[in-house]
Design a protein around this nucleic acid. Sequence first.
DNA 1: TGTAGTGTGTATTACATAGTACACAAATGT
DNA 2: ACATTTGTGTACTATGTAATACACACTACA
Lengths: 110, 110
Amino acid sequence: MFGSYIRKLRKERGLSLRKLAEAVTVEPSYISKVERDLVAPPSEETIKRISEVLEHDADVLLAVGGKISSDLRQAIIKRPELFSRLIRVVNEAPEDLVVRILGEVQDGEW
Amino acid sequence: MFGSYIRKLRKERGLSLRKLAEAVTVEPSYISKVERDLVAPPSEETIKRISEVLEHDADVLLAVGGKISSDLRQAIIKRPELFSRLIRVVNEAPEDLVVRILGEVQDGEW
DNA sequence: TGTAGTGTGTATTACATAGTACACAAATGT
DNA sequence: ACATTTGTGTACTATGTAATACACACTACA
């Protein structure tokens, strides 16, 4: 999944596999294997560099690779009761509702 | 950190290291090393078993061990834009405010 | 004074993670 | 025709993760 996802992105950017590899500072053969899903998705750091080169949301790319950004992990780990509850509750709630809450929290309407 | 944390819990429960090890189905020497932080915290599965035996919140124990429950990870990974934003926004907000939001979302007051 | 239970030390292991290094073949450009 | 670029195949490696296995020494206790 991750492989085909970034291969498509790369082609849309008109970038060769080798150019991507160079920009990300990994071996071309590694990108080749990654794009065909012959190996597991790269590390968090490498995925983040890929997201910059391909100009794609890092959180989404990490998620496609089955990972979570370490700053999110740290936030959760620092207040586990709060965030565990929050995530589980929100996960049950319909998305549009959550989006509305988010907007209001952000706008300081509380 | 994790080690001293569970050692304290275990003593409070009046449990011997070996009894804990047996209940968790790992080697006593392993628990010994874990409790003195000579090795990294156990796997998610093992921490969850420890949390049951010691009757302590699993999310908190996982967090002390630097981990996040896989069900939370899956929730985030399925809707990365939503949850990444949510976590970052909430992380900036004061806790009491977040707790109030949580309560209201739960109570279906939206 | 054994023997049962306590915690610990040392050595080892299986598997996963995250890649590198380098050679090769096909297509493209000039 | 030749050089360059493109993607790929094969082999190898270093580090981390998550433990096991077993022997040892100390304390309690009956």
